[in-house]
Computed example of a mutant assay.
Amino acid sequence: MREILIACLIAVGTGWASAVIPVINAEALALAGGAVTSVHGAIFVTLALAIGTVFGKCTLFLGVRTGKNAVARKRAMEAEEEIEHRDKDAPRGRWAKLRDLLMENLDHPWRGPLVVFIGGSVGIPPLFITASVAGLSQMRIVPFAIAVFTGRWIRFLVIAIPAALAFHH
């Protein structure tokens, strides 16, 4: 039991770090947590990892929203002005279209959390980018956090449970 508690504490910290530093791989910890603990332990470790990820993504979301990343906010406003003044028939870049589509969906009351959930569970669109853009959108933090939590916990469970069953069955 003590080992699972220590693993959960490590998982919360790793979840937070992986949420704000994309090169840190939370999925690797989910796999390791499943491999070295029982199925019950894997459930607790993945729960802690998902909670840490929510804290990290909310840090990113609020950092963008409150203007700590003023450059990103300014660029988003300039992009909105550019969109408003652009000729609707003019050709647009691929990334501009994707950004506009993501922002449009994140602003929607139920499509926004769905996009975040899909990004958290499947990874497309990448959750780091989605969380950053969501901070610029009209999405509220509670639906954002719930979508991140459920998406990430499902993803981590899908990785950890088979490993726990393979190593401890």
Rank of each mutant, 00 (worst) to 15 (best):
I24R: 06
T59P: 00
A11P: 00
P125G: 10
T130P: 06
R94V: 08
G41P: 03
L157V: 10
L127R: 00
V36I: 15
F144S: 02
L31Y: 15
G63V: 05
D87R: 02
F144R: 01
E78W: 01
F149E: 07
W153Q: 09
K88L: 14
I43M: 15
A147V: 05
I24M: 05
A96K: 14
V39L: 15
L136P: 03
Q138K: 14
A11V: 01
N25Y: 14
T37M: 14
G123R: 13
I118T: 08
D107W: 08
A7F: 09
G15E: 03
I161C: 07
D89R: 03
K97Q: 15
A166I: 11
T150W: 14
R111C: 04
G33M: 12
P143S: 01
D107H: 07
K97R: 14
A166L: 15
N105K: 15
I159W: 06
W110K: 12
A166Q: 05
H40G: 14
T14P: 00
A79N: 11
I24H: 08
D89V: 10
G63T: 11
E3Y: 10
D107S: 14
L9M: 04
I159G: 00
G67R: 07
R2P: 11
L9Y: 02
I129T: 15
F61G: 03
A72Q: 05
A76E: 06
L136A: 05
G52Q: 00
